[in-house]
Amino acid sequence: MEPRRITNTFPDALRPIMHELGSDIAAARKVRKLTQQDMADRLNVGRTTVVRLEKGDPRVSFGTYAMAAWVMGLEQGLLSVFAQERDAGFQKAARHGLPKRVRHPSPESELGDLDF
């Protein structure tokens, strides 16, 4: 049986997103007046990998995408991708975890586990 390649199993819905990501990387590189070879040298990859990166090829490792962001000073944007405040699923779960009502603590609970 032939091994499954990521290009065969990659979801169609992600293809335009990856293409846009690659285009954004290419634009950021050009604004910084870096050639593809300059970028390749800084990423320690071949120029063809940079070409694939800028096309949004899913076979390029996430580490290479992250390094490209770092080379251009955009690495902080990577943190916001999975940030809890942007995650609707996390927000919903957090809301469901809230208590039904809030009560003032009893005087005994203010003392905690102090033994006198």
Results as ranks from 00 to 15, higher is better:
residue 69 A to S: 12
residue 46 G to N: 09
residue 79 L to Q: 15
residue 45 V to R: 03
residue 9 T to N: 11
residue 74 L to I: 14
residue 29 R to W: 02
residue 51 V to M: 08
residue 86 R to V: 07
residue 91 Q to C: 15
residue 105 P to V: 13
residue 11 P to W: 00
residue 100 K to G: 07
residue 94 A to H: 12
residue 16 P to M: 04
residue 111 L to R: 14
residue 107 P to V: 14
residue 60 V to H: 00
residue 39 M to K: 01
residue 71 V to F: 04
residue 89 G to P: 02
residue 72 M to S: 04
residue 24 D to H: 13
residue 26 A to E: 06
residue 100 K to F: 07
residue 105 P to N: 10
residue 3 P to A: 11
residue 1 M to E: 07
residue 62 F to G: 08
residue 59 R to D: 05
residue 53 L to F: 03
residue 3 P to S: 12
residue 43 L to C: 10
residue 25 I to E: 01
residue 105 P to L: 14
residue 71 V to C: 05
residue 44 N to V: 06
residue 20 E to P: 03
residue 109 S to F: 09
residue 101 R to L: 12
residue 31 V to I: 13
residue 101 R to T: 15
residue 10 F to G: 02
residue 28 A to M: 05
residue 12 D to A: 12
residue 93 A to T: 08
residue 48 T to R: 15
residue 67 M to Y: 07
residue 65 Y to A: 00
residue 22 G to T: 04
residue 11 P to F: 01
residue 30 K to W: 05
residue 114 L to F: 09
residue 63 G to V: 09
residue 15 R to A: 00
residue 33 K to I: 07
residue 34 L to Y: 11
residue 6 I to N: 06
residue 36 Q to N: 11
residue 78 L to V: 14
residue 47 R to D: 03
residue 30 K to Y: 05
residue 107 P to Y: 13
residue 43 L to G: 03
residue 74 L to M: 15
residue 103 R to L: 08
residue 28 A to N: 02
residue 21 L to Q: 05
residue 76 Q to R: 15
residue 71 V to R: 03
residue 35 T to V: 03
